[in-house]
Write a protein that binds this DNA or RNA. Structure first.
Lengths: 350, 350
DNA sequence: TTGTACGCGTTATCAA
DNA sequence: TTGATAACGCGTACAA
């Protein structure tokens, strides 16, 4: 957006855009050629010590900062990884993004984040934008995407990692676990403890496919055991206050055990139960998902499921940093799944 | 644990390096010149309808995705904004990042995130990396940076916005509020309620300067009122479990009122108090900072301070999207501060 | 070990 | 309205 410097006779001010210090500036200052500087930057050992120190000094003096944009263009492939998650407000994802950012940075890669607010169309837009950076890889959340997104990704030939979910139609690589199994495990625990009525509390199940799968697993396992279990949900975000709200709804028709689509909701249930003088687990068993930091501190501590969040991040980073040998990819162009598993953490709440 | 996929019918990547579809490919297909395509992309109205539709069709058919890297090079200034926060695990910052990402995306800008883990040196590294993208702006958290960071930024002539804090030596623009005032407000409340002993519970105060300022404000106001108040801190991250730990320490020498450096810690205090059968607020008054979602749901609800998080994000985005009149940032190099204020939210806990 | 020359995919300028 | 052409800053053969 260059406001046209209408060519009046007036001498424009000194420098409207202080020229960026470029590699050749450094080269000039160090009395070497640009490519020597470039070489020094990428492989310092390949340059004689004398020149190296001269170049380094010029870099410092001029305050040179390499231009990745130009570098990326020349090298045909930028140093960005685009990470797309449903929401950064969700602790799982902010945690994963943080860890990924850290790990990828070590490999010299920068992280571009996007969040879809659980919209597949928004995801498509973000993928499109991401691909515009010729990214080293694209990391997506889950295996559900719209057709356009999938096509875009496939055509681009960019490495793609789908995380936090397994079981769908994988594009390239997937790292995660089965949420249906999570639901079943929790149900199984309730069943083994002999509860005869239960509910699954879920937020945003229409958009949060993984939470939906947990609910389905839970309900299915319950049904197979012949136990009455119902689903109570709404489309508000998963939050403590929403947990309160959903629990109030459950209370209109009480049950003995409640599984929440995540710990944050469970926290709300706990508070509301306290307010109603409902004793946990005596009168009501409670389970969550996530094992967020507060879960173990709750009174009583919350039974929940711990996903291997850090393992997911590490595995994703690994997929990106150490791509499979090219030959492997050619020979086995089939998508790969990495199961990171999860752990049921039994505590006093149910 | 790699389980091969049950082989969907999907064209595997046979070719390793499928050539990227470029603008001239589109141009060729549409039988126009590349510059026309470029023009069409940036200003569709400047192209005749006939050509426009032809170009659009070729774009769709070829699945063309523009290359921002090349674009950024040519235009000398990329469409990225680098946002650097201390931690994404902290709800304030993940929230702010999320909101910023959303707002900036509307302006066609992409968000590059970095997190420093509260290290100024790490921040410097991130700023250096950020500048490598010739970003449209850099967003930093707080006003405390090391000399190198400051110099880097100043030299680069890049718009800089420092958020979530006011009062330091501003580089360019600052959006936030005074944390010392926050501390004082909370203290004032305790004082007015007549408590005669108090403690400030703080996590990571050596690195989290804003939390430290809150503690200082709190202690200063208390002292000025002639009330005994002590500081209990450690260098672990602010979490519920750390809140429990710090509170246990306080309990070795009980006080009547506790201010926490944030709500997450306060949650831990609440749980531990429940465990010890300490009644809030009767036996112990409690206050937090942040007004996170669960604060209002706690039993009893938490007295806290609500920062105008969304206002901060909006203001930051505005600074970036609507930069000050070009008319010489150079001539009026005076940094600007925007005070977004905060609100003390009195609830039953203290 | 160092330098030269060219190209990466786009934007911007200006001429047609 | 459209199209040549010259940057943009750097990587990378290849040559010296």
């Amino acid at each position: 957006m260059d406001s046209g410097n209408s060519g009046g006779a007036r001498p424009p001010r000194t420098r409207r855009k202080m020229q960026r210090v470029t590699m050749s500036d450094v080269a000039k200052a160090a009395a070497v050629s640009p490519s020597t500087v470039s070489l020094f930057l990428r492989k310092p050992s390949a340059v004689s010590e004398r020149i190296a120190s001269r170049v380094q000094r010029s870099i410092d003096e001029l305050g040179y900062v390499p231009n990745y944009v130009a570098g990326g263009l020349a090298a045909a492939g930028s140093k960005v990884v685009s990470v797309i998650v449903p929401s950064l407000r969700n602790a799982f994802f902010s945690e994963t993004v943080a860890e990924l950012e850290r790990l990828l940075a070590r490999g010299g890669l920068q992280t571009l984040v996007g969040h879809t607010e659980y919209s597949l169309d928004q995801e498509e837009a973000l993928v499109r934008a991401a691909l515009s950076w010729a990214p080293a890889a694209v990391v997506l959340t889950g295996c559900r995407h719209n057709a356009a997104t999938r096509k875009l990704l496939l055509r681009s030939n960019t490495p793609v990692v789908e995380m936090w979910e397994l079981g769908g139609q994988v594009i390239d690589q997937a790292v995660g676990f089965s949420h249906e199994q999570v639901g079943r495990h929790i149900a199984r625990r309730f069943i083994d403890q002999g509860y005869e009525s239960a509910a699954f509390i879920g937020a945003r199940l229409d958009e949060d496919f993984r939470a939906a799968q947990r609910s389905e697993g839970f309900l299915a396992e319950m049904q197979e055991a012949g136990i009455t279990a119902r689903l109570v949900e709404n489309s508000a975000p998963a939050s403590t206050s929403n947990g309160v709200r959903l629990f109030e709804e459950v209370c209109m028709n009480p049950v003995r055990a409640i599984a929440c689509s995540n710990d944050t909701l469970a926290l709300g249930v706990l508070f509301e139960a306290q307010r109603r003088d409902l004793s946990i687990p005596t009168e009501l068993a409670l389970a969550g998902f996530g094992d967020l930091d507060f879960a173990a501190q709750m009174v009583p501590p919350l039974t929940t499921v711990r996903p291997a969040a850090d393992k997911i991040a590490r595995k994703v980073a690994e997929c990106i940093l150490r791509p499979q040998a090219e030959t492997d990819r050619q020979n086995s162009p089939f998508p790969t799944e990495h199961d990171t598993g999860f752990t049921l953490v039994p505590r006093a709440s149910g």
